[in-house]
Design a protein around this nucleic acid. Sequence first.
DNA 1: CGCCACTTTGAAACAGTTCAACGTCAGTGG
DNA 2: CCACTGACGTTGAACTGTTTCAAAGTGGCG
Lengths: 243, 243
Amino acid sequence: MDDQRLERFFRRLRVRDTLGQAEREALSAVAGQTVYFAPGEMMARYGSSPSKSLLLVQGMAARQNTVESGQQQITAFHIAGDFVDLHSFLLSKLDHDVRAMSAVAAVEFPHDGLRRITEEFPHLTRLLWLSTLLDGAIHRQWLVAMGRLTAMAHMAHLFCEHFVRADNVGLVEDMSFPFEITQQELADALGLSNVHVNRTLQELRRQDLVSWDTKRVRVIDWKRLQEVGQFDPIFLDVVQTPR
Amino acid sequence: MDDQRLERFFRRLRVRDTLGQAEREALSAVAGQTVYFAPGEMMARYGSSPSKSLLLVQGMAARQNTVESGQQQITAFHIAGDFVDLHSFLLSKLDHDVRAMSAVAAVEFPHDGLRRITEEFPHLTRLLWLSTLLDGAIHRQWLVAMGRLTAMAHMAHLFCEHFVRADNVGLVEDMSFPFEITQQELADALGLSNVHVNRTLQELRRQDLVSWDTKRVRVIDWKRLQEVGQFDPIFLDVVQTPR
DNA sequence: CGCCACTTTGAAACAGTTCAACGTCAGTGG
DNA sequence: CCACTGACGTTGAACTGTTTCAAAGTGGCG
């Protein structure tokens, strides 16, 4: 029987390939306990060697590093249907912290179970691999945005990305998606100061591109938001094709 | 028989796990033609869907994106022993260009051959997967450096990273590694202007941390270079362990 | 009702950019 | 063999996007 908790994850895979009954059952069989985290709580720590990976079911999480000055840099945001640390299955130590941004529920996938999947389900293995490749593609776009776009364009790009990702797992309602983080946390993702994030946000609002009431971001002008952010969804690879 | 062209790639894997005879042979069997590229030449294009992946055997290559202003952002450098676009095996379209920085030789790996490996060699598949996870880990460190480090620290970090990576595949000699790119290309990787790269480089030289004669970068003070770059090699995961 | 976390505002400072000129060197052709 | 070329590196000076610091405003919650 399919595990209901994995529904959004299946959905994210199904926008890119098909997923067989046996594959869904294999994943369901490996899925373990649901674990819960309070907003701000650490889900995994820099330098640790987790024996399970966490699939987000509810809420939002981030991967982040701390530099000597005490500043933080967020390198990824995750939403329901995302594995937050599937890479820890093959990397021996975590090179970042994982922190819950909101109240979070996640399903544990023990690494020995994942290993069994790689021994018996080649196609499913490729889909799990794909999942980490999409993380990498998002990292690359963040690099481009950080290195060569203005604060305004960078922020618009991030909102575009999250709009599409949320849509892929059925979290968009009325052109809005859940985005429960603080301006400081957004600043830590964009590599900006909280002050400049605040001002850039005001400009995005003033131009009627988005609104954000701390719970959800609403896209007001999707076409112009994409233009401002120079957003091309190609990197999210939303294409149904055999992998 | 092992394919000699894959030697540095095997070496890169062997610093992280063991590689069986059968696995080396399977890879050798899939390896196709050697292809050559002149400095500056495009090896793969944004939006294309390659049917093979390229393993670098000689020279240096970069993945890069172009933004509307015409500026470029490099998101990865690759050296001998690296797959430059292994991710194109599972992603349907390339989200960046791949360009030869120097004279390059690369071995083609047809995707159907790679697929056969994933069907028959689970452990080798995990190692290929690992290879793309390391790319992702490097992307994340670049994000941290770009977002929260000064130009000076960022550049030092990049040199540290390349020193370790070059060392892993036996390219370090006399504390120096091949680094045949222009200052403009380095600027495109760091997200800086060529002018500021020039000045930052002068400061690194003035402090006797590195020298760079356009062909090779020589590390003069490894300990202080790591301090200046806040470099922690954990993300490169140089640990011999079963995966 | 008061606290605390978060957002907003203003002003000064700064890291890095831009523009434009000049220097250097390796390769090319006459 | 030397003048010419073009790509790359270096320098100076003005400029700007973003940061920093500090203070004030807002709002949800115990």
